[in-house]
Amino acid sequence: MLQLYIGNKNYSSWSMRAWVLLRQAGIPFDEQYVRFDSFDSQSEFKRTMATVSPTGTVPLLRDGDVTVWDSLAIAEYVAEQFPDKALWPKDKAARAAARSICAEMHGGFTALRGACPMNIEADLAEVGKIVWRDNAGVRKNVERLCSMWSHLLAQHGGPLLFDQFSVADAYFAPVCMRLKTYQLPVPGEIAAYVERVHQLPGVKAWIDGALAEKDFVPMDEPYRAER
């Protein structure tokens, strides 16, 4: 059976992508949880991950003697191994678009990711107001998200970015968490998409796990001293 190494569900956006993809697609896997403490080379997290990963990061997928690290590589590997799940759109042009927006997310949106780290448990609306007021990069990132999602929802008819669930929805699920946690302003159609993503069974299962952790990792919460 596949083994998926992940960090804290409350904080680990990279882990969420791979976990939600597998869970929502109904692909069995064993979850290997490695708690965040710090990313120092001598931390428990880094020492644990160093035994299985060449990069010492999560997520990491093991399939027998095959090891796949990086969330986008995991998505490609899983889609290749389970073609019946149609994790990428079947249409060539749609598939190219889906891969492009996932790559864009993978290497971009740095202002949003930096100013609004994922924290599913928290209500950070007040932090979000300050970020929205003062951070032009975040506003630009959200504008791009809204433009992208609006176009795809209109083109493919919804309810998800490419009609049916795909890698793209799993890939943007952590962004949906951020938009909700920080209450960043988005148009109604975008808020509705965010809510539909929240209601996906695989996403709900991840959220339930995040809320059950009851963990506080100070390095992931620079805006407060305790939960």
Rank of each mutant, 00 (worst) to 15 (best):
Q3W: 05
S41K: 12
P185A: 09
K214Y: 07
I120K: 12
P117R: 09
L4N: 10
L72I: 00
N8K: 12
G114E: 10
V68L: 01
Q32T: 04
R95I: 03
G202E: 00
Q155K: 15
E143Q: 13
K9L: 03
A122T: 12
R178E: 01
A173V: 02
P117W: 11
M177P: 03
D215G: 06
P218C: 06
V186P: 00
V203Q: 02
A115V: 05
P89I: 05
R47P: 02
A170Q: 08
A93V: 14
G137M: 07
L184R: 01
A173Y: 00
M105P: 02
L112W: 03
A125F: 05
L153P: 00
W88R: 12
L211I: 07
R35D: 14
F82L: 02
K90H: 09
K214R: 15
Q164C: 08
W69S: 02
V142F: 06
G202P: 01
L4D: 10
L153F: 06
T67N: 07
S150V: 10
S43D: 12
S43P: 09
P185C: 02
R23D: 13
Y33E: 14
S147L: 13
R133L: 09
G188I: 12
G157Y: 06
T48L: 10
K204M: 11
S71I: 00
A205W: 10
T110R: 14
S12A: 15
P117A: 11
R35H: 14
A111C: 14
Y5C: 00
Q81M: 13
H106I: 03
D169Y: 10
E76M: 05
F39P: 11
Y223D: 14
W69A: 00
R196G: 05
F165V: 04
V58W: 00
D40Y: 06
C176S: 14
K90D: 12
F45Q: 15
I27M: 05
L179M: 07
M16L: 09
L184H: 00
I27E: 04
P185F: 05
K90P: 09
P174H: 03
A136V: 11
L152C: 08
D169P: 05
G114K: 15
G158V: 02
R224D: 08
S147N: 13
Q3S: 13
P89F: 04
A50R: 12
E44H: 13
Y11P: 01
E189G: 03
E121R: 15
R47M: 13
H198I: 02
A111T: 12
Q24K: 01
F29C: 07
E195K: 12
E44G: 11
S15K: 12
A50C: 03
P222H: 11
V66W: 03
